[in-house]
Simulated scan of single mutants.
Amino acid sequence: MAVIRLAGGDLFIWSPTALTEGLRAAVESLGTVSHLIAPNSLHHLFLADWKRAFPEARLHAPPGLWEKRRDLAFDHDLADGPMQNWAGEIDQVVMRGNVITTEVVFFHVPSGTVLFTDLLQQLSASRFSGWRALVARWDLMTGPEPAVPRKFRLAFTDRRAARAAIGHVLSWPAKRVLMAHGTPVSEDGRALIRRAFRWLSR
């Protein structure tokens, strides 16, 4: 999860996690929760809790989530290019062509931070043992730097669309990279992204 405070004080909640009382209090101390972002069709489990807690917040859905979560009344579809509410502060592009999920990648302009959800991951090898350790290593999830897991690489059936999207990502002057599953990268973010997606050009 990430919290971005927009220039007007509204909060942009990216990939919201389980809402505890402590987390709610911490978030409320930062500003008004106005936007709840599901960045792909896999990160949506706690949206209903957040919407109940912040009924005035707008729900934003990536491609494919409307059909999966018919119990939620989404306000907007996430597409290429920023919403008017955060234009100039956050840019975004849709990574299409993957049969597992369609992910929206965001770029926070003031901090130079790119936000990936599942398409970049790096987990500690100590989290796994036995056959799970073998699977995690095969899936490129425990390497020396964040990488695109092998299962997601294989699921890109439209590589032309993926290359176009990652080309847009690489146009951003990225300094940092934030992932839902991995330690944040604090420098040379664009170089890391270029290395992580080099396989797309092969």
Rank of each mutant, 00 (worst) to 15 (best):
I90R: 08
A79I: 03
M83W: 12
W50A: 04
M95D: 00
A48M: 04
I100S: 03
N98S: 13
P62I: 05
A48E: 15
L11S: 05
G8V: 04
F54D: 02
D91P: 01
G31F: 08
G8D: 15
G9T: 08
T20S: 15
V27T: 14
V33L: 11
D75G: 14
E28F: 00
H76T: 14
L11C: 07
G9I: 08
G22M: 02
H60C: 12
N85M: 09
M83N: 13
W66V: 11
E89Y: 06
K68S: 08
A79L: 09
L59M: 05
F12V: 01
A57K: 10
E67C: 00
L65M: 08
A61Q: 09
I100M: 09
I100E: 14
F12H: 13
M95I: 12
R96V: 04
H44G: 01
L23T: 09
Q92A: 01
H35C: 02
A87V: 04
A79H: 02
G81M: 10
L11G: 05
M83L: 15
F46R: 02
M95K: 01
G9E: 09
W66R: 15
A48L: 11
N98R: 08
S15I: 01
L59G: 07
S29I: 00
E89T: 14
P82S: 11
M95Q: 10
S34G: 12
T32C: 06
S41D: 15
N40Y: 10
Q92V: 03
F12R: 02
G88E: 11
S15G: 15
E21Y: 04
G97N: 10
A48I: 06
G31W: 03
K51R: 14
I13E: 01
R96M: 01
A25D: 12
H76A: 11
W14T: 07
H43C: 00
A57C: 08
M95R: 06
E21L: 11
P62N: 09
P62R: 11
A38L: 10
K68Y: 01
W66F: 15
V94C: 11
W86K: 03
D49M: 05
D10V: 00
P63R: 05
A25M: 00
A25T: 14
W86N: 04
L72K: 07
H60R: 14
W50L: 06
V27A: 01
